[in-house]
Amino acid sequence: MTEPALPDLGMIEGRFGRLWTPDERGYVVETLAAAGYSFYHYGPKADAALRRSWRTAHDAAQTAALAQLSAQVRAAGMRFGMALTPIGSTHPFDDAVRADLTRRIADLDAIGIDDLAILFDDLRGDLPELAAWQADVVNFCAGITRATRVYMCPTYYSDDPVLDRVFGARPVDYLGDLGRMLDPAVQVYWTGEEVCSKEIGVGHLRRVADALGRRVCLWDNYPVNDGARMSRHLHLRAFTGRSAAIAPWLTGHAINPAIQARLTCIPALTLPMLYRLGEDYRYAAAFTEAATTLLGSELADLLQRDLLKFQDAGQDRLNIPIPNYPHTHRHRGGGAMVGGL
């Protein structure tokens, strides 16, 4: 029997909260590559040079560390990408902004990127001609980068009405306008029906593809736990609410990780299983296999025993502190306004 093809699996390190250490990130890279992941996009919200201070380059030490990360990701057989959030670049998108973008993208190209992502998530969206201006910015960046793949994340990256409440009402036919104006080669990140979608199905993805005129790359906000409430929980369970049937409707499937780098790898290992096994996938068995692979059988059994406490009850409802299992870090909570992206 021919094994079903996996979609392009990746990680978009796009959460709020503390930055991982080089050792933590290196562990994740090696684990994902061995499991069949094919890309790693670096864009943590706490990296100011990619977001609130995007016009200012990384310093020499940061640049060297990112070049080393690029080399590590590529040596592991994955594509390396970086995500820039050019706050204030669309209104106006003028010569000064073009000059800033040209300089900064040259900086990222010099670090060594295969993929470039331009993100507009968690920014005000009630602006005139939003889709047109965002498309102009992304198309401009696509035209000057040496990266061979370009991604973008819209301001309204989900159907979730929470985005309209927090960032302003989305423009009429925002996705349709964006899809018509974006270069056809640009891939669009999308989180699903909700910011943190419990289920992602074919019907929804088909509708979004029809609106955009292209399939999306899924930005899956699991196992991310960077919000003030979510950070009190460890997201450890295997993937649920997704099926192998969605693969033809995706250009890729990227997960947004938890604060705990090594524990992130437990659910991460189950995503390839979900696609490979199809209707034979069982999430409890997938968790056991992934946890045993990474932690050994004894520690995996302990984690399985306390899974309900860690993931569902959370730290605030426990009578004892969360155990500091080997290779884990206690979570302190991030600053995500809407809980995931």
Rank of each mutant, 00 (worst) to 15 (best):
V202C: 13
Y27S: 09
L84Q: 04
I113G: 02
L269H: 01
L303V: 12
I118E: 01
A99L: 09
A245T: 04
D95E: 15
R149D: 10
I200G: 05
S231F: 10
G81H: 02
G213Q: 07
P86D: 00
P128S: 12
T145M: 10
C217E: 14
K198D: 15
P223D: 11
V202I: 14
A244P: 00
R262D: 04
F167I: 00
D115A: 07
G179F: 03
A245Q: 10
V29L: 14
L277N: 03
T63C: 14
A247I: 04
A211S: 11
P326G: 07
D95K: 11
L178W: 08
D173M: 08
D136G: 10
D114G: 07
F120H: 02
D115Y: 11
M337E: 14
M337N: 15
Y156M: 06
I322Q: 10
D220K: 06
T251I: 06
A71L: 12
G179M: 03
F80Q: 03
G340S: 06
G125K: 03
V137L: 11
L212K: 00
L302C: 13
A238K: 01
G201F: 13
V97R: 06
T328N: 05
R170H: 10
D47H: 10
A261E: 03
G14E: 01
L236V: 02
N256C: 11
L163K: 05
G26S: 09
Y40I: 02
V202D: 15
L108V: 02
D159Y: 09
A244E: 02
T191Q: 08
V150H: 10
